[in-house]
Write a protein that binds this DNA or RNA. Structure first.
Length: 277
DNA sequence: ACCCAGGCGACGA
DNA sequence: TCGTCGCATGGG
């Protein structure tokens, strides 16, 4: 591996937190190494990442690919500005306090879709395990022991029993249906990227195993549709208490980021949102 | 032993 | 169009 360290500057006022961003449940392929660096694979590129006061430090970045990683971490967006907008609402300001350094990553559409299919009725540790096994079993080995996320074409030719080693349970047939519809062109992700939001939702939900929540996550994390607002059990609970009349107007264009703050607040302070009312 | 997990599809009313 | 239930697997 190329051991040169490359830097991507992030202004301090952004309040960026690499750890919160990679552990908040939007991505599943980053692991914290012994030395505190995060190791991950994005679109077939392995990288080690850390942060200091100046911003990100990346190890293993190929020549000319700094831009790729800056895009992945969405460094051209000012989260400080977005927070200022969101914090026009008192309750949102409070929610943002718990993890202001979270940033919505710009992930690869197919991997994101597939990962959130796996996420349903599942917990973070198990999602990561299943995704890791999916890559080890069917992804290209990009270097020793490091695997890319498998393509839809590779998965489309498999059967449910081929996926048994993943131990993904009832989700196996959903993974296969997604792979087949995407590889056959029945669902064209490049088109989904530019469609009217409601059309994009409908297209994704043609896939068996993709409902409103999975589609919303795929569109937010995999297609950078910042108006999307995934509602899982945690969010429903938190919204009932914080915004019974719905999300305030100031959050409309950045609902996805507001969702990250609220979601994290609910996870960190479960006692603030009792499940029974 | 039980309950739950970043839900969804099938089914019945 | 609504509520309810089963679903595979694993951890607390």
């Amino acid at each position: 591996m190329n051991s040169t360290i490359c830097r991507l500057a992030i202004p301090a006022e952004e309040g960026f937190s690499l750890g919160d961003t990679l552990n908040c449940g939007q991505c599943f392929r980053w692991n914290e190494a012994e030395d505190g660096w995060f190791e991950g694979v994005v679109e077939g590129r392995f990288c080690r990442v850390s942060q200091d006061a100046q911003g990100l430090l990346l190890q293993g970045v190929a020549d000319g690919e700094e831009r790729f990683w800056a895009d992945y971490f969405d460094l051209s967006t000012s989260y400080a500005e977005i927070r200022t907008k969101l914090c026009g609402n008192k309750t949102l300001a409070k929610a943002a306090e718990f993890a202001p350094g979270i940033r919505v990553l710009r992930q690869y559409p197919w991997e994101t879709l597939c990962s959130f299919i796996i996420s349903q009725n599942n917990n973070l540790a198990r999602i990561r395990g299943i995704v890791a096994r999916l890559c080890e079993c069917f992804g290209d080995e990009i270097s020793a022991g490091i695997y890319a996320f498998p393509t839809p074409e590779r998965l489309a030719v498999l059967s449910e029993s081929d996926l048994a080693p993943l131990r993904s349970g009832f989700r196996a047939k959903y993974i296969l249906d997604a792979a087949r519809k995407v590889s056959s062109g029945e669902v064209v992700l490049a088109d989904v990227a530019t469609m009217e939001l409601d059309d994009a939702r409908a297209v994704l939900q043609q896939i068996h195993g993709v409902g409103p929540k999975v589609a919303e996550c795929a569109l937010l994390y995999g297609f950078a549709r910042m108006e999307c607002f995934p509602m899982d059990v945690w969010m429903k609970r938190a919204m009932k208490h914080l915004f019974p009349k719905g999300l305030p107007r100031c959050a409309r264009d950045n609902a996805g980021i507001a969702q990250q703050y609220i979601f994290h607040y609910a996870r960190v302070c479960p006692d603030a949102f009792p499940s029974k009312l």
